[in-house]
Amino acid sequence: MGDYVLLAISCILVNNILLAQYLGCCPFLGTSKKMETAIGMGMAVIFVLVMAGAITWLLEAYLLKPFGLEYLRTIAFIIVIASLVQFVEMFLRKSIPALYKGLGIFLPLITTNCAVMGVCLININEEYTFVQSLVTSFSYATGFGLALVLFAGVRERVLLARVPKPLQDTSIGLVVAGMLALAFFAFKGMA
């Protein structure tokens, strides 16, 4: 049990998917302008990532490995993720239309969110067991959500500040992300 807690902490804070492993930057910059969309995006990623982590692990263990089809991994994983995203999209459109509108273009873009695909590949590369994969998927996604919400909070304040013209928008966003990454960097000392 203790192992799982350690694994979770390491995935959420020390190896934060966004700020230490650079995965999922596009939605990070795109959906972090407002707190609401940031929370929505975080939730969507947690949901999709846990399911994708479980399904891709099973796929690898029971289909790709026994038949020696590892070279098809990329294509198999992306198809699983794409169909999952489609499912989440339909679900949100039916049940929470306001959130669906807020997320706009970024919901289909979860398909091309490297964080989802990246975590699935990390799980396979590190040879985690099924339960470990579930724990890492959930914690990586939580770490993503955490960073996204923190960043959205900072960014809402930056909107009120007077930023030099060439630095505006994405540019200042990246610099702020760098500062946030510096804060998370300190967790490396814990490991």
Binding site: Q21, L167, I172, L174, A177, A181, F185
Partner: peptide
């Protein structure tokens, strides 16, 4: 070469591009 530097560096390069482009 660490993660924070990557973000800051890219942000500043973007800023340069904006100055040059304007």
């Amino acid at each position: 070469v660490e993660a924070p530097g990557a973000f800051v560096c890219l942000g500043l390069m973007l800023c340069m591009m904006n100055i040059a482009g304007n």
